[in-house]
């Protein structure tokens, strides 16, 4: 549905561009039949690699941090639970862009004052920021998945002699994983979209490249239309993978 609508709108724009007076539209900037247009397209598409690398790394870190945050968050002891709760509430409250500025411009100052000379390049700055920002949500996904398993499962595990760790490992987590994976994969889409913010700290990903071509060609409508199309293709690929995963999980869900 999304795809069809988008194609329809794009075709409409293209068609209107063709029939409008010169100067209103300028698809020539990304016309592959001209040398300049082809160079622009190559330059714009080459941002895919950075966007994908950044998103995959951020998602991977987020999944790890999320689990580390989520597990103590389910403890019966409130003092074990507290740091997890504070982390989630705190991180969730910070908008991505200010956090990105803080990590990229602020964190090196702190590191330096601690005597650590660790430079933070745009790629790692963006990856860390995206991972931390997203980890609050992955942590909640883990918690929701684990707590959605019926209490009777834990009770039955106890009556056949399993201890807490065995119950988690053999009974609860295998069932929770089926419920956690689809929303976790969905969260990946969020990361891909938010990776566009990395452009403001100078990372050469899709959005940054689009901005640079816009500045040199002064054709924002055409370039940004292509940019949106690039994200759409990426997200549609991921979301169809998520749907496949959901179907597979659903088929395996024997309860």
């Amino acid at each position: 549905m999304k795809t069809k609508t988008f194609i329809a709108i794009t075709l409409l724009l293209v068609a209107s561009g063709c029939s409008s007076p010169p100067g209103t539209w300028g698809w020539y900037v990304i016309d592959p039949s001209t040398q300049n247009g082809w160079n622009n397209i190559k330059f714009l598409l080459s941002g895919f690699s950075a966007t994908i690398r950044l998103s995959v790394l951020a998602a991977f870190l987020s999944i790890l941090i999320g689990l580390v945050v989520a597990l103590p968050g389910m403890s019966l002891n409130r003092w074990v639970r507290l740091p997890s709760r504070v982390y989630i509430e705190f991180v969730r409250a910070i908008p991505l862009l200010p956090m990105l500025f803080w990590v990229f411009y602020g964190l090196p100052v702190i590191l330096k004052s601690l005597g650590l000379n660790i430079p933070i390049d745009p790629f790692w700055g963006a990856a860390i920021t995206l991972a931390i920002s997203d980890s609050a949500f992955t942590a909640e996904i883990y918690r929701g998945g684990i707590q959605s398993i019926e209490k009777g499962q834990t009770e039955a595990a106890k009556t056949v002699g399993l201890n807490y760790m065995q119950t988690m490992r053999y009974v609860i987590l295998p069932q929770a994983l089926r419920r956690i994976l689809p929303p976790l994969a969905n969260q990946f889409i969020y990361i891909v979209k938010m990776s566009a913010f990395a452009s403001v700290i100078g990372m050469q990903e899709l959005t940054r490249r689009a901005n640079e071509v816009v500045v040199s060609e002064y054709r924002p409508l055409e370039i940004y239309s292509l940019l949106i199309l690039e994200y759409l293709v990426l997200v549609l690929i991921i979301s169809s993978a998520v749907r496949w995963l959901e179907r597979k999980m659903g088929a395996d869900q024997r309860s």
């Binding site: 009777g152 499962q153 009770e155 039955a156 595990a157 009974v171 069932q175 024997r254 309860s255």
Partner: peptide
């Protein structure tokens, strides 16, 4: 936990492990 291993239990809702 130690007592319950001597005691088996059957629940109203079966509580079999579905996976």
């Amino acid at each position: 936990t130690e007592v319950s291993s001597e005691v088996g239990m059957v629940f109203q809702q079966f509580n079999l492990f579905p996976h």
